[in-house]
């Protein structure tokens, strides 16, 4: 796995209509929570599990192992493959043909995210406020983090009733 300073927009290898049901299979529950806690207690098991996650998600989504997965809220197009690693939507430099300002041969990953989310009627996911990434989680398993509830508050909604939601700080 390479944590290169300027990643390249990645086109997911599975269609959005498969990715959403796949997530439903992995959705957190008591069994997964117990399993995650068990795996974390065994360093060797943790390494194997994380390697498996990395191989799978690297192929499918260009995963860079940030450890706090945003995929379910981005139409399963990874925002960490944006050269600016934007978590909250596309920058203003997307050109009229939809290409990335850093590499004109590649399509903006946020445009891919928008199309995929919209195709699954999940466009509203892109309205979520994504809080800053915890850089200590790089190379950690995002699945184990997710199952143990560490992703709570990673993305939050705003509405007319709550127009200025507070950021959860430590």
């Amino acid at each position: 796995m390479a944590i290169e300073p300027t990643p390249k927009p990645y086109r997911p290898r599975i269609p959005a209509r498969l990715a959403y049901p796949l997530h439903a299979v992995l959705a957190t529950n008591r069994v997964y929570r117990w399993l995650a806690a068990f795996v974390e207690r065994q360093p060797r098991l943790y390494r194997w599990f994380t390697a498996g996650e990395r191989i799978t998600k690297e192929r499918l989504f260009g995963c860079r192992m940030c450890g706090q997965c945003a995929l379910p809220a981005t139409g399963y197009a990874c925002p960490m493959t944006c050269p600016k690693q934007l978590r909250n939507g596309p920058c203003g430099g997307v050109s009229a043909d939809g290409s990335c300002e850093v590499d004109r041969t590649l399509r903006c990953v946020w445009l891919t995210a928008w199309d995929r989310a919209e195709s699954a009627s999940r466009g509203a996911d892109l309205d979520l406020l994504q809080r800053p990434v915890d850089h200590r989680q790089w190379t950690r398993s995002s699945w184990l983090n997710y199952w143990q509830g560490r992703d709570e508050g990673l993305a939050i909604t705003f509405s007319d009733a709550d127009p200025y939601p507070p950021m959860r700080v430590r």
């Binding site: 690693q85 809080r131 850089h135």
Partner: peptide, 25 residues
């Protein structure tokens, strides 16, 4: 390239500093 925060998160951080009187820490 740093991009530790994105533009939206930076705005959010500034509002947190000003209105909540808190750092991200």
């Amino acid at each position: 390239p740093v991009f530790d925060l994105d533009g939206v998160q930076l705005v959010w951080t500034a509002r947190t500093l000003r209105d909540e009187g808190k750092l991200l820490s």
